[in-house]
């Protein structure tokens, strides 16, 4: 995962604390809920200049940092 991406993620993961956010840590376990997910989505779209379509806004996409980052990368290319 891109370090900038991890920096964008961190404020929305209230249970992550100062710990490393690994690519396969479950974002829900780290405190992401539906309200934070929409805020995170906006932050990602602003930072990386992408627009994630509705059909990608699934639990699978938001499962881990890796799954979310892969969607961002795919949309950036």
């Amino acid at each position: 995962m891109d370090t900038e991406f991890v920096a964008v993620l961190r404020p929305y993961l209230k249970y992550a604390g100062d710990r490393e956010i690994t690519a396969d840590a479950r974002l829900r376990d780290l405190g992401l809920d539906s309200m934070r997910a929409i805020e995170l989505l906006f932050a990602i779209e602003d930072t990386f200049g992408v627009s994630i379509p509705d059909e990608r806004l699934t639990d699978e996409t938001f499962e881990t940092g890796r799954s979310l980052w892969s969607v961002v990368e795919e949309l950036r290319t």
Binding site: S34, M35, L57
Partner: peptide, 15 residues
């Protein structure tokens, strides 16, 4: 309702 407001923003196509 807070959760649903957020979820609504993830379904812009209102499916």
């Amino acid at each position: 309702r807070l959760a649903n407001g957020s979820l609504a923003l993830m379904d812009t196509g209102v499916r």
